[in-house]
């Protein structure tokens, strides 16, 4: 007749002692060693409090239909320029050359957010003029909504120059977000929702590219046109205009932000508890060994024994 285990249950044994004993001291030490070291281990192994986290979002970008174009038309430094700012155009006088511009913004995946800007610009030139360099500045309205609501006005700057006169410049790139410090995790962040170029100003200093770019680059949050491969096509016919084709995509951005209180606590809690479990198991075994073998004198109260006191 073979026996088999038909049922089992753990038996609870209580160990009692008075307050001023070595067992009490041992218990206090064990409690301290169980709960405090995991905190130190989690903290010293770095990354206990998360300072920076990231999320993905496609921004809501709109072209603001503000443009500034400067094209050098000779190697001596003659130039023609055009902008959408009437004050600047008035100041330019004979240097003003109005191009034909066509702009289209596309939502390719039908998600309600625009994905791409297609800008085609044809700059008419006189027969004696050639284009050696182009500077183009476009402004955008840039918005993020997922964590903190970001509303800002940003710009894209295209600059290309060549020693050979060109017929066409073709730019295809991404409008990338650049952050110096992480964004807050909530709230409205609209300190940069101001015009990059003050179009209402009649003074020439407002349209100085140097100061525009300098004040723009001092911001924490900027966009840059990342176009590693602009294509400069040479061989323009005398009567044909200079063409500038730009395709600017608005990609999904990885945005870093400072996590809020509860997110920080949540990740710290996960780390703490996972290390604590190991310590709990170890010290449970130690305690069992100490009390079962009566290393420290206690009064064991076995199961089923009625109350003595």
């Amino acid at each position: 007749m073979a026996f088999y285990e038909v049922y089992s249950h753990p038996a609870l044994i209580r160990y009692k002692t008075s307050v001023c004993t070595r067992a009490t001291l041992f218990l206090a030490a064990v409690l301290c060693l169980t709960y405090i070291p995991p905190l130190l281990v989690a903290y010293r192994s770095q990354g206990f409090w998360i300072k920076r986290s990231t999320y993905e979002e496609q921004p809501v970008v709109r072209f603001q239909y503000q443009t500034l174009l400067v094209a050098a038309t000779s190697t001596q430094g003659d130039f023609v320029a055009w902008s959408t700012f009437p004050h600047l155009n008035n100041m330019l006088g004979p240097k003003l050359r109005i191009p034909a511009v066509s702009v289209r913004e596309e939502d390719q995946n039908q998600d309600g957010k625009l994905d791409m800007l297609v800008l085609q610009l044809q700059l008419p030139l006189k027969p004696e003029e050639q284009v050696f360099s182009v500077q183009l500045l476009l402004t955008f309205s840039y918005q993020l909504f997922r964590m903190s609501t970001v509303a800002m006005q940003s710009l894209a700057y295209v600059q290309h120059s060549s020693s050979v006169p060109g017929a066409k410049l073709s730019v295809s790139g991404d409008l990338r977000l650049q952050q110096r410090t992480p964004l807050p995790h909530r709230g409205l962040y609209d300190i940069y929702n101001v015009s990059v170029i003050d179009g209402s100003s009649p003074f020439a200093s407002s349209y100085d590219l140097d100061s525009i770019i300098r004040s723009y680059q001092s911001r924490n949050l900027t966009t840059v046109l990342s176009c590693p491969m602009p294509v400069w096509t040479v061989g323009r016919a005398a009567a044909s205009p200079f063409e500038l084709n730009a395709e600017i995509r608005y990609p999904v951005e990885v945005i870093s932000y400072r996590p809020g209180f509860w997110e920080t606590i949540k990740f710290a809690w996960i780390q703490y508890v996972s290390i604590l479990l190991v310590f709990l198991w170890v010290f449970e075994r130690i305690q069992r060994f100490v009390f079962q073998n009566q290393v420290l004198t206690t009064v064991p109260i076995p199961l089923g024994k009625p109350h003595l006191s």
Binding site: F79, L88, M91, L92, A204, S205, D208
Partner: peptide, 20 residues
Amino acid sequence: GVFRLPAPGVTADCVNSPAA
């Protein structure tokens, strides 16, 4: 009219910018 003081515009060339 407007009192203008030539100043560099988008390039180093003089443009007739108003004086503030």
